[in-house]
Design a binder for these strands. Structure first.
Lengths: 375, 375
DNA sequence: TTGTACGCGTTATCAT
DNA sequence: ATGATAACGCGTACAA
């Protein structure tokens, strides 16, 4: 075996000597002229090699005061040599805890969910938790499948934003089932009081109210709302806020100025029709996707943004930032929502307190860009 | 206990009778006037309730021919009543397999990774695998941490796209370590031959070559390349393809027409400077983010797109689709890459064949939009 | 100070 | 047809 010429992989068993271990067995693999261990070692392996019992090894590794310094030194040395890492599956079985949480998202198309997820992931990782994700694609059935897959895989808790269909059909038995078994659930952005779990929300009514009010302050008097057809509590709340702001001002709410678009694909013709029939000087959109497309249509109708028509959207994503003109948005601070959701869930998992419902409200901010007048 | 008036949660033990089970113990919880099980049941619970042994229950549930129809019927009935689901952690420990894969992504900012991830997730779920994700943020250290976290959690294999820093520093010992232990690794988009694992790639040289050629066919003669400073094999390959296409045509490669931007934030002033100093009639960009920003700058310089300057980018994401004008892009078909990566990994996990390196090339397509002339 | 025995939930092998 | 036992890897109460 001439290492110098070794080009590819090679595995074997090496017997070496060292002061602590008279004769040590090493499963190795040689790859790219470097030596790596070819095996995951267990307590048993360590115990056998050192001729002591498994429990002694275990105690030594866990800094038990019972173990002599000498023994501990040997154990730690060998563990390091072997790159010993406890088998987490065995630990899970024992502790009945997996340090693993599941996340169910409606999609990743909307930048909002991407940022929430990032927040969850980073916070959870920092606390040593793994994160598994599934998507519901806003389908109730897929949401249920996802939750089953996650639960079967043994997660300690679940963070989710309800699928649109679930909110519409009010079918959340499968969520009540898992909370009944004591698995904590945190809902963000789209939640229901019917499920026993914490909620991390933004104040959608309030944020839409303030955005609309802002448009009014800028002297806009005929303000449209572009929303989605599908039943989503958040969009309904935003509509309420919009309506309330109008009613609280000298203006009045006019249903003709509200356009509900199908969720799937936006038809530019529908937008063109709407803006032709109903001339407005400001538009509030429930997400950035709709906003950007509406801006294109309005531009193509020869109107200037923001001089003739001002736009405010939701979701502080790529589209808002890089659209032309760049879009003023209500930032839901997804990253914060994600962090908070993960924090609430992990705290509940670790504290093992009885499940209950707490509502956390994440503040929104208005990010002003070029689609609204300078202030 | 008057159910009719019950508003909130209540737990307790119920003793019921049924033909099969003389006296059945049910841990229940009443929530929103519905009854749910309050416990995860195990084989032991079933066995105790039926007064038979655990192994008989196990066999009955696994359709063993050894078990009498009568017994099996009873077991299945109770299992259904109890909503029995095998404890996956225990199974993992036994099978030494977790049906769980880990994914490490540089980020979710680029739509490309989002779609790859979606492909991975859907394919893996369809085959009953869970997916845990971590992000490297293009940092080598974070990548290593992520891999350790995933490996410690007991994933059966890992899919990753190398962090930029990792490719730059050529530090992949931690990857070689896990393949040495027999854990399969699949690299997509950003890979290295130094790690023993499969690669799912697009032909970056070829795709850039063809995109550039297309621009030449459209009669463009001074074609710029906007790339990133950071060392990324894909961007280097794209530059090679760009260069080759120029050299293969009557045009020639001019380094002054190549601008390498810092990865973090694009400075519009740098772009303005570049396009002022170096008038071009076409631009190839290594991603859509750069492309969209460059288009804004070029527009603001009074040039028309695509008449004066044509643009082709990479990544068929939201930005390309909804930018103005919409951007022609090389579509890397991230979803397909994700699916393929997951397929290759899961096949390797299940087949338990020795690790090796296979390269799979996913075809690219050119999605023509308004930033290039009609053909 | 060290070792033995047990249990976490499951399946497979080997009695009965 | 059914049951006892061992094993997967770990930690810990208890015995030596």
């Amino acid at each position: 075996m001439r290492l110098g010429y070794q080009q590819f992989c090679l595995t074997g068993v090496l017997r070496v000597r060292s002061p602590d271990f008279k004769r040590l067995k090493l499963y190795i693999r040689i790859d790219q002229n470097k030596i790596f261990l070819a095996k995951k070692y267990t307590l048993k392996d360590l115990a056998q090699e050192l001729n002591i019992s498994i429990s002694t090894v275990s105690k030594a590794l866990n800094n038990s005061a019972e173990i002599s310094e000498e023994t501990q030194r040997k154990v730690l040395a060998l563990a390091q040599l072997y790159h010993y890492r406890p088998n987490s599956t065995a630990l899970r079985l024992r502790e009945r805890r997996s340090n693993h949480i599941g996340v169910v998202l409606p999609d990743l198309v909307h930048h909002f969910f991407t940022t929430v997820f990032k927040g969850i992931e980073e916070y959870a990782n920092a606390r040593g938790f793994n994160v598994s994700v599934c998507f519901s694609d806003d389908s109730s059935q897929k949401e249920q499948d996802a939750i089953n897959l996650l639960m079967d895989s043994g997660v300690d808790g679940i963070i989710l934003s309800l699928a649109g269909e679930t909110q519409q059909l009010k079918r959340w038995e499968y969520l009540q089932e898992i909370t009944a078994q004591g698995t904590p659930v945190v809902m963000f952005d789209r939640a229901t009081d019917q499920v026993l779990g914490d909620q991390v929300m933004i104040d959608d009514v309030q944020s839409a109210y303030k955005a609309t009010q802002k448009l009014i302050e800028w002297g806009r008097s005929s303000i449209a709302l572009l929303t989605t057809e599908s039943y989503l509590s958040v969009n309904q709340d935003r509509q309420s806020g919009y309506q309330k702001a109008l009613n609280d001002s000298s203006l009045s709410y006019d249903p003709a100025r509200v356009l509900a678009l199908p969720k799937s694909e936006v038809d530019p013709e529908a937008l063109r029709q709407f803006f032709t029939d109903c001339p407005v000087d400001a538009v509030l959109c429930v997400n950035e996707l709709i906003a950007v497309q509406a801006m294109h249509v309005v531009s193509s109708l020869g109107k200037r943004i923001p001089e003739d028509v001002a736009f405010i959207g939701y979701n502080n994503g790529m589209l808002s930032k890089y659209s032309y003109p760049s879009l003023t948005v209500v930032d839901q601070q997804g990253y914060l929502m994600g962090e908070k959701s993960a924090e609430v869930l992990i705290d509940k998992i670790l504290s093992k307190t009885p499940l209950d419902t707490n509502k956390y409200v994440i503040p929104t901010t208005l990010v002003e860009r070029d689609s609204t007048p300078n202030t």
